[in-house]
């Protein structure tokens, strides 16, 4: 039997799952919920955040978090399609991984633009 090429996608899925489980809730709290409650007012200003994201280490970490979450979601959607009995794996995989690749590219462009 031929070896499967799912391995690299599963690797991104597994890494993304870990990141999503541990980091994403904190990110949502810090960047989404806390500012609406009036917390970190000075730190979350446009100027402060621009300077923060301007740091290379921050860019690399943010790139990792965002893109791994995208690849995790893509693989999960591929599996969900399979679970719903959609036996058209190639087009489904092409679409979801294509979207994740596009998101990865846009993330890189956005971060490099800061």
């Amino acid at each position: 039997m031929a070896r499967s090429h799912k391995a690299p996608f599963w690797f991104l899925f597994a890494a993304g799952g870990t990141v999503v489980a541990f980091v994403l809730p904190v990110m949502v709290l810090v960047t989404g919920i806390a500012p609406t409650l009036g917390l970190f007012e000075g730190a979350m200003s446009f100027d402060a955040m621009s300077a923060f994201v301007g740091n290379w280490l921050v860019k690399i970490v943010l790139f990792g978090i965002i893109t791994l979450a995208l690849w995790h979601a893509a693989h999960r959607l591929r599996v969900v399609a399979h679970d719903f009995g959609i036996r058209a794996d190639a087009p489904v995989a092409g679409t979801v991984y294509g979207l994740a690749a596009l998101g990865t590219l846009l993330t890189a462009i956005a971060l490099l633009g800061v």
Partner: peptide, 9 residues
Amino acid sequence: TVASHEGIW
């Protein structure tokens, strides 16, 4: 066999 499409994946 194990690492094929029909296997773990």
